[in-house]
């Protein structure tokens, strides 16, 4: 077990809290869909797991690649679609 990854995790939570509390309520829906897209980072793990080997592992990885990609592409696109509507007078 590596203590470094815990350090990274804890520090990232603090950074997250710090920057996300500054997002105004007006942008909470885009924040949600945008962070949703970021959680699609699981795609990295999905790609790695397709090569782990074994028939089952490959197919699980393949399914995960599809789902995570839907998350990433759909999430970023829909966030952009929303954000371009926000206009000042």
């Amino acid at each position: 077990m590596d203590i470094n990854i815990f350090t990274v995790f804890i520090l990232a939570v603090f950074v997250g809290v710090e920057i996300i509390t500054k997002v105004p309520p007006t942008l909470h829906t885009p924040l949600m869909s945008g962070s949703n897209a970021i959680s699609g980072i699981a795609i990295v793990g999905a790609i790695i797991s397709t090569k782990v080997g074994g028939e089952l592992g490959t197919w699980l990885g393949f399914t995960a690649v599809i789902l995570a990609t839907v998350n990433v592409v759909g999430g970023f696109m829909v966030t952009d679609k929303m954000l371009k509507m926000f206009k000042k007078k």
């Binding site: 990854i5 995790f9 990232a12 997250g16 996300i20 924040l31 949600m32 962070s35 793990g45 790695i48």
Partner: peptide
């Protein structure tokens, strides 16, 4: 995503997962 990052020992997953986890909890 973060716990999968722990499984695979991958910082990108851990950091992103932590950010999203924090965001959801704040909301």
């Amino acid at each position: 995503a973060a716990s999968t990052g722990f499984v695979l020992n991958n910082n990108a997953l851990i950091i992103s997962g932590a950010l999203v986890g924090a965001s959801g909890l704040i909301l």
